[in-house]
Design a protein around this nucleic acid. Structure first.
Lengths: 356, 356
DNA sequence: GGCCGTGTTGTGACCGCTCACAATCCTCGC
DNA sequence: GCGAGGATTGTGAGCGGTCACAACACGGCC
């Protein structure tokens, strides 16, 4: 049985076609009976070209199917309309959505976007140097440790912007960056749970993007603040990972403790795993336990129970990060004040009052 | 309340630093007291360079922090180690996973990868021309109509490979392509449902990648074949979209019909929506209705009931597509026979026998 | 000692385009 | 009818690398 297939047309050396190389501006010039510089003027919309000449050149361009060679253009002009995204992940919702927003903005501005995945194995400096050697600018997604580390090592002479988890500590603003205020959002979510009558709220954390400085993990911090403000001692956070499996592992432990009636999760995948663990343990949601996620991934509203979560505007984040980069690349471009939707608590079915 | 923030370091013109441009091979040559050609030899590992000279050059490279300019290299050598992925989506699981596999393979081979999202609005030919002008090769993800259309319009002189939904119709193999045999998998999934005692199986389709030629939608076709082989007349397929919302809409209608006891869905998102609709309609899964998805997205095993689905090796697909492209770009590279895991039916909780 | 072959290095041209500047054309005003 | 000045066009150089080839050094051979 054929489980998979592929076609490829003949050997590596394609017998016919595919050989003739594309027309250059000199080819066009010759065809139009002008100098190459005139062709250059036409393709760059310079004002001083006689109408009739322009027309002739444009016809030649059309006839030869000429397209300006992007590489040569970049080399000669020094302008590389390219942005390379450095990220440790492309599939997780937050990352994918940020990338999506960025790509859209970049495309609209005529930039092409490259993606380079960061892995713990490879040499960060080398990777960055390679990416920077491509010309253009860098956008690093610094949601996690690896991304944050990469951001720190970008040499100061390469244009770079970042989307990060938390505002950089006050001292030297290292790089233009955008973030969403999820500390406040996390606090609000926790307060919501408290208002519902829960005596405490447990937290299943996502891995921190920074070392030990606890204040840098805004979601954890917002949760802690809400609890402290309410006069309750925060229970130890759990969780070691980003995905549903990590949530499931954390959830199993939490499910055993009857004192656990409200759980805030660092993201929706984690929440999904927690929900699953709770289900396995026979504890109902929201009857016995309330659960809140973070991010509002597309499927979160369709699972059962539909997940209460904090919606974050990742697309806007990506868009803004690109704007920041563009501001560095084009001296006359003033990056617009980032406009992204603020975090918003979306109440659905996974939360309920304590005594319901 | 600050809901979002950003930092940017001063105005567009950075007062200090960021100005000095990177060292070229001539700078290195001068520093090492040799000619630029010798530097070129060193960075390209040419054999005939005296050991001591090489050492001196390497020191100079180190000292100046020299990095070969990728643009200039591409222009002069004609080799652009770049692959641009043309896709209509980057977030849906199948697309994202394919992209991930491709990026990994490309990175391992020293290629950089670009992403260009296709939209119905913009001019396909123009988009393709732009992407091709970047040099390097193209990989188009042709799972949907837009991607398939793009694939058709790639000029024959640009290196290109594709990941597609179904094998191209026999006649002229237009382009090297990879696909998974989901027709067979779909048939197997349907048979599984039939074996469970269901009298018929309903299908919630994903949008087809081709026009009207029905045989080109392999998932639908496998389902139909299984039904026909079992002597049952296939009910009309439903569904109009890729996401959970589309699944929900289709599921609502299906839920009203008590004759519906088994539903096969074109992907896991659709299945999620169907599950949700069934739940709202008060029909239990798998008690009243069995549901099967397609793709095995990461969260599918964590939802409740855990989704029975057909696992597809998208990463492998992306990897293989890259291999095919590389075969065209490097004349001495023989693309390995694509090795990707075959589709596999993963039985979980959303399916059960008719009379359970 | 002169010749040859190999190892090592340097020079020139070029990739396809842009920039800066010089050369030519035209039109106008006196 | 002629010079000024703007419009239009062409030439040379260079972006940062590569390739092809020439030049030079060295040792071994006759």
């Amino acid at each position: 049985m054929v489980v998979t297939g592929h076609t490829s047309s003949g050997g590596p050396a394609d017998p016919q076609g595919s050989q003739q190389k594309p027309a250059s501006i000199r080819d066009v010039a010759q065809a139009a009976g002008v100098s190459y510089q005139t062709v250059s003027r036409v393709i760059n919309d310079h004002p001083n070209v006689k109408e009739e000449t322009r027309r002739r050149v444009e016809e030649a361009i059309e006839a030869l199917g000429f397209r300006r060679n992007a590489t040569a253009f970049a080399l000669a002009s020094g302008v590389t309309k390219t942005v390379t995204v450095l990220t440790s992940n492309t599939v997780l919702y937050g990352y994918a959505a940020t990338l999506q927003g960025l790509e859209e903005a970049a495309r609209a501005a005529g930039y092409s976007v490259g993606v380079r995945v960061l892995t713990p194995e490879d040499d960060l400096d080398r990777t960055i140097a390679t990416a920077a050697a491509a010309g253009g600018g860098l956008v690093v997604i610094g949601f996690d440790r690896l991304g944050a580390a990469a951001l720190d090592r970008v040499p100061s002479n390469v244009p770079c912007a970042a989307a990060v988890e938390a505002p950089p500590p006050g001292r030297t603003p290292p790089r233009p960056a955008v973030w969403v205020d999820d500390r406040t959002a996390s606090r609000a979510a926790t307060e919501y749970l408290l208002d519902l009558g829960h005596e405490t709220v447990h937290y299943v954390a996502i891995p921190a993007s920074t070392g030990s400085r606890r204040s840098a993990a805004p979601r954890a911090e917002g949760w802690r603040q809400a609890l402290v403000a309410a006069g309750v001692t925060p229970p130890p956070p759990t969780g070691k990972g980003w995905d549903a499996q990590a949530g499931y592992d954390a959830g199993r432990k939490l499910a055993r403790d009857p004192g656990v009636t409200a759980i805030l999760c660092g993201n929706d995948d984690l929440a999904l795993g927690v929900l699953r663990a709770l289900h396995h343990a026979g504890r109902s949601v929201p009857g016995d336990v309330s659960v809140i996620g973070f991010d509002d991934a597309p499927h979160s509203q369709f699972i059962t129970p539909a997940l209460t979560t904090v919606r974050l505007d990742f697309q806007g984040l990506g868009r803004s990060a690109f704007g920041l980069l563009r501001g560095q690349l084009e001296s006359d471009f003033q990056p617009p004040e980032p406009t992204l939707a603020g975090p918003e608590l979306v109440r659905r079915e996974s939360t309920g009052s304590r005594d319901a």
